[in-house]
Structure formats: structure tokens, C-alpha cells
Simulated scan of single mutants.
Amino acid sequence: MRYLLALLLASLASVAQAASLTLDTGHGATTLTTAQLLARKGARAIDVPGDVSYHRAMRYKAVPLRALLQGVPADAHLQFTALDGFAAEIPASLVLDGHGAEAWLAVEDAPWPSLGDGKPSAGPFYLVWLHPAAGKVGPEQWPYQIATIRVLADPAARFPLMRPAPGLAKDSPVMRGFEVFQRNCLTCHTLNGQGDAKLGPDLNIPHSPTEYLREGMLRVLVRNPQDLRHWPQAKMPAFGPQVLTDKDLDDLEAYLKHMAGRKPH
């Protein structure tokens, strides 16, 4: 039994060491293995208090993410695609100058703990942050099980069917809600059939949630999905006021109501 356990642990470590990350900063995709990443200058062990995914302090071997983005301008846009279809959209400016927040790519060189019963670990690659509050980094900006990092145009340019009607003031509730949607919802959901995420349902086709939820229930859904529909297999997390303020939710609802009238024909 002890031999089998040792063999299993060795096998898991071998799998972790064999993982590879696809990185495309706009000049063609490259592949970086676990060993190559950990051999880079600046790679070191870091301590992450209050890890978003593990809900406790964690220690990782990690590489400063900005070191992988040489030549990427601050106004660029980064997409982190996970093995399960989660697609986080993060402005490069947050990584290159997070006003004190530091982005690190944690590398699973030996098996990390499971994220829960029957779940895998956060590896093989996981974007973690030191001092996240300094850059107002939200939980959706901690993507794990990362397979690909790409520099792309921002979502408004890539997905025109998500854009509100032209002519709206930039600080209008609808436009502010569009920003909330891009930051927090686009990681899992499509809208009007557009988007790269594969986890959640489309939020406008065939119906917007604002068309079938009575007043106030969208807020219940976002604050804690299990308070609306109890479903043990549900993947949507709860978004507390520290992540989405009540004003953010009001703006998001304004955007979704607006887009309910802009379905593609």
C-alpha cells in the first residue's frame, strides 16, 4: 500500500511537471513548460494570505506575470482561458501597473490541494495576487487551471453584439453596467451569442434574466445563487458587496434591461 501511494504521488508530480502554458502576446504563440517557467529569472516562492480559491494562506512557486509580458502595452487586453472554459478578461494595465497590486503566475511543480470534494487543484497555472486591494482586484481576476494567456482586443471591440446602443453617455447606468458585465460576468457567460466563456448560459438569448425574474430577484441571484435556486452542482459563486456594490448591481441590471431590447435578428 505504501509503495502504491508513493507511486501515485510520483505520478501526480510528473503530470504537474509536464504541464505547459500557451502564451501569445501578439507575435505568435509560444509554449512554456513548468520547468521553463520556474527556471526564469525572478521565479521564487511567495506567500499569498487569504487566497481567493483556497480561502486560506497559501505558498506557491511563482513567476512575476509582468516578466512574461515584455513589449505588451499598458492599453492592451489580456485573456486567461482555463481548462474548464472559464475565460477571464483583465486589462494589461492592472498587471503592468497595479498601483501596488502584484500579479504572479503560480506554477504547480508538485500537486496542490484539491479545490473541494471531487474537484481538481487550481493548477497547473494560477494567477494570484499580492496586495490585491491596492489595485481593486476582484475574485474573478484570480483565474486558475490556466491553459492559455493571450493579448486580444477588448471585449467591446471583439463582440459588437454586446455593445449598448451608440450615443449613450459614458457615465450612464447602462454603460457603467456594461463595464460591470465585462469585468464580472463575461468570465462565464456569453451575451447575444458572443463571448469566449463556456461555463454559464447566455444572458440575453433567448431571454434576459430581467425578462423572467421579478423585481429584486436578480440581486438575490447575484448575491447568492443558492438563495434563488438550490442546486448542489451550481458553479456560480456568490458576489458580496465587497466585490459588487449595490450601485454596481443597479448598473448591471440597467445594462441587461437595455440589451433585452437589442437581441440579434
Rank of each mutant, 00 (worst) to 15 (best):
L4S: 12
L4C: 06
L5Q: 15
A6M: 13
L7V: 10
L8Q: 05
A13E: 14
L23M: 04
D24P: 05
D24K: 06
G26T: 13
G42R: 07
R44H: 10
D47Y: 01
G50Q: 04
R56E: 02
R59V: 13
K61M: 09
A62F: 04
L65G: 02
L65E: 08
A67K: 09
L68H: 05
L78T: 00
F80M: 09
T81C: 00
A87G: 12
A88I: 01
A88P: 04
E89L: 03
L94K: 14
V95E: 06
G100S: 13
A101I: 01
A103C: 06
A110R: 15
P111Q: 11
S114N: 09
S114I: 01
L115M: 11
L115E: 01
D117Y: 01
K119L: 13
F125D: 07
F125E: 00
Y126M: 05
V128W: 01
V128L: 04
L130N: 15
H131K: 14
A134P: 08
G135N: 02
P139L: 00
P139N: 01
Q141S: 13
Q145E: 04
A153M: 07
P160K: 05
L161N: 08
P164Y: 10
P166K: 05
P173K: 12
R176N: 01
R176C: 01
V180S: 11
R183C: 02
R183F: 01
T187D: 12
H189C: 06
T190G: 01
Q194D: 11
G195V: 00
L199M: 10
G200V: 10
P206F: 05
H207F: 12
S208L: 10
S208Q: 12
Y212P: 12
E215S: 14
E215W: 12
G216A: 04
V220D: 02
V220M: 02
L228Y: 12
R229D: 15
W231C: 08
A234V: 11
M236N: 00
P237G: 04
V243H: 07
D248R: 06
D248F: 03
L249E: 05
D251I: 09
L252C: 02
Y255N: 11
M259Q: 14
P264A: 08
